[in-house]
């Protein structure tokens, strides 16, 4: 499968990675190399082999439905991001984490 520069830009945008023209071109050739490798692997006959969803052939361990976590909000909020609007304090208020205004 051939990748285009538009594919690179779209993937970068979806991942919220800012990318300039030079880096986009460099990434295009690297990603194309990876896809070529995958194409090579796809040539292997895997018929009759059940696909795995994890590298380890194990099943998910389940946890009993018990509340084990206590309220550590104050500790966690000391480590909240600083928004860079002049304040050097973690961006929290009334127990909420603050982010730039979101409007739908």
């Amino acid at each position: 499968m051939a990748l285009s520069i538009e594919d690179i830009k779209k993937v970068a945008h979806l991942a919220r990675i800012e990318i300039n023209e030079n880096d986009a071109n460099a990434t295009l050739s690297k990603l194309s190399g990876i896809l070529a490798l995958i194409e090579q692997m796809q040539a292997v006959d895997t018929s009759g082999i059940e696909p795995m969803s994890h590298a380890q052939d194990l099943s998910q361990r389940l946890r009993d439905d018990v509340v084990t976590k206590t309220n550590l909000r104050d500790e966690f909020q000391k480590n909240a991001p600083i928004l860079g609007n002049g304040s050097q304090e973690p961006a929290v208020a009334g127990g909420l984490y603050l982010v730039p205004k979101v409007i739908e």
Binding site: A93, L98, V99, V102
Partner: peptide, 8 residues
Amino acid sequence: AVESMSGI
């Protein structure tokens, strides 16, 4: 809750 911000 806070001017020009959203709380999470």
